[in-house]
């Protein structure tokens, strides 16, 4: 009797080494995210969390020296940022750049792809309180909360299968965190007809966003390696008590 086939992972990162400038920031990362899963990446600042995200997105300056990233069975090596996006990878940047002359409305329409988007726009404007921002140059003079709401609107329009969130709660007040959290749930939990469920990878160093979003699996990225894996809330509890240094040895680690 043939063995049951494992479901193909959505994202598979294998033995990933990444150098930025002359510095090797990631030193052998293994990470598998299956359809429907939401993972959390914890870790101290400078530990390489954003580097991992940006490498998956395909930003220049992040050089893969060893290992691979596979998305839906496709090796991402050599694919441009836009090709990865069209393949189904979305990213909410921590500090997205302001683009003079491009309105938020345009970017939402572009992210949504071909077709009419009036209904979607009306929905997003209401859901994320975009009325005052929708016809402004994107991110130009946006507050922290406005910037995150703008990112969420673009991503909901883009509707990626895997969404990467870089510090979604940073620079956001409490009212806005709740709105951003709601949008993240919409991104992560909604079904895609015929395409299975969506997945996410959330980078956070405070963990506050987890009060609004349920995550399945937590990882601690420490000194360029995934040092720890477990229940996200337990991990945050441990880190709160003992700090990241003890993480590698902590009792709840499943690694």
């Amino acid at each position: 009797m043939p063995a049951l086939q494992e479901p193909q992972p959505l994202l598979a990162v294998e033995d990933l080494h990444v150098t930025v400038g002359d510095h090797e920031v990631l030193r052998g990362i293994d990470l598998v995210i299956a359809e429907g899963e939401t993972h959390v990446l914890l870790g101290p600042n400078g530990g390489g969390k954003t580097t991992l995200l940006n490498t998956i997105v395909g930003l220049p300056g992040y050089r893969v020296t060893q290992g691979s990233i596979t998305f839906k069975g496709v090796d991402l090596d050599g694919l441009e940022i836009d090709e990865r996006a069209r393949l189904g990878i979305g990213v909410a940047f921590q500090r997205p750049p302001a683009v003079r002359g491009i309105k938020l409305r345009q970017l939402i329409e572009v992210a949504a792809g071909d077709g009419e988007h009036e209904e979607l726009l009306a929905d997003l404007i209401g859901e994320l309180s975009l009325r005052k921002m929708i016809d402004r140059d994107v991110n130009m003079g946006f507050s922290g909360g406005e910037m995150k709401r703008s990112e969420m609107a673009q991503l909901i329009a883009q509707s990626p299968e895997l969404t990467l969130f870089d510090e979604p709660e940073s620079g956001v007040d409490l009212d806005n965190i709740a709105v951003v959290g709601r949008a993240m749930n919409r991104l992560l939990k909604s079904e895609r007809v015929g395409k299975g469920t969506r997945a996410g990878l959330i980078v956070t160093h405070t963990g506050h966003i987890l009060e609004y979003v349920n995550a399945d699996i937590g990882h601690v990225l420490y000194d360029g390696k995934l040092a720890c894996k477990g229940n996200p809330r337990d991990l945050i509890g441990e880190i709160g008590k003992h700090g990241y240094d003890k993480c590698v040895e902590c009792a709840i680690c499943q690694r």
Partner: peptide, 8 residues
């Protein structure tokens, strides 16, 4: 890059 990340 920002626009590219939205698929452009």
């Amino acid at each position: 890059y920002y626009l590219m990340s939205r698929g452009v």
